[in-house]
Design a protein around this nucleic acid. Structure first.
Ligand code: MN
Ligand code: MN
Ligand code: MN
Ligand code: MN
Lengths: 249, 249
DNA sequence: CTCGATATTTAGTGCATCCTAAATTGTCCG
DNA sequence: CGGACAATTTAGGATGCACTAAATATCGAG
């Protein structure tokens, strides 16, 4: 099945497969121009690369229609994503790297580190399941939590949620701002008010009440929080079966 | 002075400059075939790369005569060597990597890590001055201990020396064997006997008396050790001024 | 001093990746 | 249904880095 590839993916190839995987997840498909945008290359370059990757069995390409990963392509993408996220976690947790700067570093190291090193880091971290931005870390054999989360922008006024992750870790300014207002994975956030016509949202995070725009809110992925009733212990362990169903492949 | 380079050395370029630096140090010059051998490429490939690097001001090339680093070339080489050796030290000391496997890993990471990360690792290690193989780590501004050491093969029978470093860290088998007989930087070794006609050497390291071939002995760089006389304190602090002169540029 | 072995360079290619400009295709609106 | 416009692919090139085979320079031996 696997094509007679030169037995090691190049850096550009790994980045293409990773980008296509993410686009497929977000948008259900990956178009030439989306990939071009994500990788900052010309659309024509994407067409060329896509032809080669399709020939090597990493993806299916219907001209003028878009591109889809094969099993081999998805496996390669998830391997790179695992490396990226383990590296980010190590940089943050062990070396004290700020969370807005780990992405660029990991973007290069992910192609250079050996499997042995990656697993060594993972072990040193106690086999983490999510990276500093809350993104799930695929397992060695390519299983990953693919749950889709709601965003802070969709939260109903008065409701509380727990932040799960940032939609993308590529924007340092956004990440710095989120850190400023203490919005990080695990944080509880309440939507206090929402201005009409897609206006700003008033949040409560701990004591603070930051006001954020809808664009930012759409970048913050949340999950419902099981508010423990102050005195009555009954509803605390409410199962919530539907929301916690992990999709693994 | 610096040529209009595309503002970042590629991985092959960094490896060429590093190899040329090492050859220049060892042999006083770097010939096309030596570089080709060191990098496992064809001699014709070296000629091509050398032409480009000379055009960019990293080295001087006299056709048919050999190649020499310019100041820019030496600086680039030392930067890569610093990264390599800091990475090796981190892998060994913090992650418990065996000393015979750090080289290959560092050989790739050295091109991907940012300056920031390298300095972060150096700080975490307390700014080490030598790598796991005893090789000196250049400073950020390109200063390096360039002392030339004698080898174990040159030691006089009956004399004791302290191992400084392994001549090269590229041979895992050699490194594993050295570790087996407890020959590591800092170890004290006494030459007990030398068989004639370039025969094997009998050493004493701690309690053990391993017998090694002259090829191996030539890979082990040593410095004279100031044997503290058990009772008489006279000869202990013998100055030995010539041997300890550090050459820094 | 000349010859031949050896080292080195030149010539001619291939492949991966990128680019710009010019076709081509798909879509959607009037 | 027929364009217009946007998205996409094709065409034609460039760059970096590698290779093999052929030419050429160097140098030591006789
Ligand atoms: Mn990358
Ligand atoms: Mn991340
Ligand atoms: Mn290298
Ligand atoms: Mn080393």
């Amino acid at each position: 099945m696997t094509a007679p590839s030169p037995r090691a993916l190049t850096e550009p190839v790994e980045d293409y497969l990773k980008a296509i995987y993410e686009l497929e997840r977000r948008n259900g498909a990956a178009s030439t121009s989306e990939v071009a945008l994500a990788l900052a290359v010309a659309p024509a370059s994407v067409t060329g690369m896509v032809r080669r990757l399709a020939a090597q069995g990493y993806l299916d390409h219907v001209p003028y229609r878009g591109v889809q990963l094969t099993a081999a392509g998805r496996a390669a993408a998830l391997r790179t994503i695992r490396r990226h996220r383990i590296l980010e976690t190590y940089l943050t947790q062990v070396l004290g790297y700020p969370w807005d700067r780990v992405h660029d570093e990991a973007e290069r190291l992910e192609h250079a580190a050996s499997d042995e090193l990656i697993e060594c880091l993972a072990a040193a971290l106690g086999h983490p399941t999510s990276d500093p931005h809350g993104a799930p870390i695929p397992t060695v054999d390519g299983l990953v939590d693919e749950r889709v989360h709601r965003t802070l922008a969709d939260l109903a006024v008065g409701h509380t949620a727990r932040m799960v992750r940032v939609a993308s870790d590529k924007d340092p300014d956004l990440l710095r701002y989120l850190a400023d207002i203490a919005l990080r994975p695990g944080a509880e956030v309440t939507l206090v008010a929402r201005a009409p016509y897609d206006g700003p949202l008033t949040l409560r995070i701990g004591e603070a009440q930051p006001i954020v725009g809808p664009n930012l809110a759409a970048q913050v992925l949340v999950e419902p929080v099981l508010t423990p009733a102050p005195a009555s212990a009954a509803s605390a362990t409410e199962p919530k079966p539907a929301a916690s169903r992990a999709r693994r492949r």
